[in-house]
Write a protein that binds this DNA or RNA. Sequence first.
DNA 1: ACTAGGGTTTTGAGCGCTCAAATTCGAGCG
DNA 2: CGCTCGAATTTGAGCGCTCAAAACCCTAGT
Lengths: 337, 337
Amino acid sequence: MAATSATLDTVAALAGVSRQTVSNALHHPDRLKAATRDRVLDAVRRSGYRPSLPARQLATRRAHAIAVRADPQQDGISGLVLDTFFHGLAEAGHDNGLRVVLYPAQATQEEEVALVDDLLHSRAADAVVLTATSATDERPTYLAATGQTFCAFGRPWGHADAPHDWVDVDGAAGTTLAVNHALERGCRRIAFLGWPDDGATGADRRRGWAEALDAAGVPGPRREDAAVNFAEGAEAAARRLLDLPAGERPDAIVCVSDTLAFGAHRAAATSPAAGDPPLVIGFDATPVARALGLPSVAQPIREAAHACLDLLVPRLAGEDPPARGVLLAPSLALPSH
Amino acid sequence: MAATSATLDTVAALAGVSRQTVSNALHHPDRLKAATRDRVLDAVRRSGYRPSLPARQLATRRAHAIAVRADPQQDGISGLVLDTFFHGLAEAGHDNGLRVVLYPAQATQEEEVALVDDLLHSRAADAVVLTATSATDERPTYLAATGQTFCAFGRPWGHADAPHDWVDVDGAAGTTLAVNHALERGCRRIAFLGWPDDGATGADRRRGWAEALDAAGVPGPRREDAAVNFAEGAEAAARRLLDLPAGERPDAIVCVSDTLAFGAHRAAATSPAAGDPPLVIGFDATPVARALGLPSVAQPIREAAHACLDLLVPRLAGEDPPARGVLLAPSLALPSH
DNA sequence: ACTAGGGTTTTGAGCGCTCAAATTCGAGCG
DNA sequence: CGCTCGAATTTGAGCGCTCAAAACCCTAGT
């Protein structure tokens, strides 16, 4: 309508009240007499007023935004998880009046920390959501030390009771689900196909497998093998398992990722079949697992994003959130038919 | 250092100059005498000064940010494309002093347009990058009509010479690459597996296939079939092609997506092999294609993101960008071994 | 009628920056 | 040696909002 967009003063003049009254009508309607409020809100409508975010940011000294890292790329079959996380964040942020700003991943941790520091100090964001955390990650330590507000997606593996907020998915619970599913399907020799490195995430998932077998009191030797997230390697590793003598040949393979499950599936399909092909179970419920018809552990990514905001929102309001860390339970995605 | 963070005035006092001189040292170093500039910059360093983004936004009436939609989810095997696009945007934005803010996809186009309108008017962003555009998309029309600054990732299919900036990947060129690769490998009966709908993107890719065959002057009947982005359907469709009599059976299948390629690959593997299995070529170069060892057309997503900014940056500066639309050439990703 | 007292509304003072206009400085020239 | 002119720097004003405190207005109590 107007040549230049409406401001509080414009609306105030239109409604015959003061600037502050308009602000109150918008943010503290209870402070106003009903008649005034309605009159003002009507003026707001007629003028097409839109509050200026920058002005609000400046006055309140808050960005009303959170930052999250944009990863350059995701290897392996498990992509698209981050997409979902971003959307969840944007959605939950929107519900809380927080925008989500992306920052590009940097080559080194130092650069990244500097960039985050900058975002926070220049008031482009009030808090950061850290993704892709690992045991050797310096970022949480630094951010915590400098008193920044943040929430990590990933447990503070290295530092057991690190003093910061985090959200994670219970990997062990996921593999336990997988094992129990295999048991229900009548499998008894349930092998594990993991990652060769000793990363915390992989160890956690392996533990869930081992504990589930313990709990079920399954006898017999326990087989496992490992490969990096690469289909060929996984296929070879799975084949080693399947080439075991008939009595020891696994009838199920619980995999630490869908990439490995993909490899295992190929091995199973081409293995000199002695009876039924083994049940292969993946992790991450990617479209690949779905396409192959493999069961796969599904992480509640959207919920994780919302959980991050549930921690961050009170924190930004100066209150303590209900918990320091949130551990979410995954589910098992079964093939649709 | 300081209890409250440094501002221009803090630094100015420290360096014994005025506020504006500090600002100039930062943004227009040429306006200052070298000695002054150095002295000021030193003071900036010592004070740990960080410019306040909101203050700058308010004064310049620009957000120095662009908005992009966070999709709830991507169906099919082609995920991760968006991840890469986001990262490219964040990266290119960072290089141009623009932040990237995410907005959650809305249920309806009206809601989405309203949200975008809000972002732009509240000065949370100066421009929008539209993704997932289609022929029936009202968003470009509306944004153009209201004079908003934006760039679409996807050609303005419906409206041939729509008056807005866009970036897209040349799908026809991609399938042409695929056909030529198949020809080089000695294939002569090159079929096409497309989508059943008459979407512009699918039609474009199909055209590339047809034209490449024309150009090569390949004789014989031209076979094609279609399926939605779903592995089972694709497998069935591919099987129909492969069940053709020996002389007509395709020796290569160019697919409109990796999801379809995946299905075709399965059909090829189980088909009553008459000679060599057919060459299956996918589209999008997802990890699945890589894992299966299929060639696949790779879209230059990162470049597309950068191209969007190359259009938007001049536009935001009030100049005309070098071109209205940018059509990027894809490449063919061959299996690594 | 007169004044507390509460609820309602307005005023004043910035938040930290950038623009434009005004001022000061310093050399070059007659 | 004063004067002009351009370069270097400063000043003033304001971007549009929120906070706190002040001013206002009414109703109830005596």
